[in-house]
Amino acid sequence: MEHDLFISHASEDKDALVRPLAEKLKSFTLDVWYDEYSLSVGDSLSASIDKGLKLSSFGVVILSPSFFAKPWPEYEFRSLVALESGRAKRIIPVWFNVERDDVLNFSPHLADKVAVITSGKKLAAIALEIMRVVHPKKISTLARALAARIQAQSNTELVDVRELQQSPLREPLSQDQLRRVRLIHESLFEVYPISWEKIAGNFQRDAQEFRERELRSWEHIAGTYSGIKRRHNLSRAESQHLFQVLLRSSLGTLEGVTQEAPAWVIEALDDFHRRLPNAKD
């Protein structure tokens, strides 16, 4: 697939929700396609969505008063539901300024589908709810992605990743996991100064199947960071740059490093990607 998702919507909703939602999803590292899916009178809803699904893993449909005001024939909505017959969920309805009765009166087919409801929610919460369906693995890497973005903007005071607080807490961490988080927190605090409650909460928001992998990623970043900083006595600015390099490398978003880069950067990347001695796996 070329895109994680596309957004199908009435053109009247672009400014109020669609553009901000698309930008928020993009900031959460999702590949979003939406400009070509601003629907106008005379467009075929099912044909547009069918085309979008050929190029995207998921389709988000914004159901709103403006969307309902368009003269969609009932067969379009039956076609919309039929697109998912016999396959995994790929269409995500988003209710924008509408309630269940509005959707039910307009199309019982759409009312039966589990939807993302925007009423009373912040934009980040809506985006995270969509992201949990579209790409749950990326939810677990979001703390690293947001921290890397903040570092790239040369923000010397790393803010906590507040947008992650919109995601619900899951099962509590074990005592062993909490001890590992404590080592990560203490090792990186000077360049990632968020509170203990927030960093532990970030890990608790990870789904169980991704939590261990994310803990290992952060442990690897913290171990490499501590070793390089100790061996090279880095300044605060250099330490922040080192953290950014390691974050981006862990995400696979670091561009090639030239030989003109500081020796400690080249050493850090070599250390980060080298297999540790005495490893059994």
Rank of each mutant, 00 (worst) to 15 (best):
52 G>F: 00
31 D>N: 10
202 N>D: 11
168 P>L: 03
123 L>W: 02
47 A>C: 04
220 H>R: 15
223 G>Y: 14
276 L>D: 05
256 G>S: 10
244 Q>S: 08
90 R>G: 05
137 K>T: 01
24 K>C: 12
121 K>L: 06
166 Q>S: 14
216 R>S: 12
217 S>V: 14
221 I>F: 05
78 R>F: 05
98 V>F: 06
60 V>E: 01
78 R>Q: 06
202 N>Q: 08
77 F>A: 08
146 L>P: 02
132 R>C: 12
228 I>L: 01
162 R>K: 15
240 Q>D: 09
201 G>W: 02
144 R>E: 04
228 I>Y: 00
38 S>V: 03
136 P>R: 12
128 L>Q: 01
61 V>I: 12
6 F>P: 03
69 A>S: 15
256 G>V: 15
194 I>K: 01
49 I>V: 13
173 L>R: 03
100 R>I: 06
100 R>N: 09
187 S>A: 15
178 L>E: 12
29 T>N: 12
221 I>R: 02
218 W>G: 00
188 L>K: 01
176 D>A: 14
65 P>C: 04
12 E>Q: 15
156 T>D: 10
1 M>Q: 07
23 E>P: 05
189 F>M: 07
212 E>M: 04
192 Y>Q: 08
205 R>L: 02
231 R>Y: 04
130 I>G: 09
141 T>P: 03
213 R>Y: 10
40 S>D: 04
140 S>M: 02
74 E>T: 08
133 V>A: 06
199 I>K: 00
68 F>Q: 03
121 K>H: 10
187 S>V: 09
13 D>V: 04
112 D>E: 13
155 N>M: 11
174 S>C: 10
97 N>L: 11
95 W>Y: 15
243 F>N: 02
148 A>S: 12
258 T>K: 07
89 K>I: 05
55 L>E: 15
97 N>K: 15
236 R>K: 11
64 S>T: 12
113 K>W: 14
120 G>R: 05
35 D>S: 09
277 P>F: 10
125 A>D: 11
75 Y>T: 13
188 L>Y: 01
62 I>D: 00
113 K>C: 04
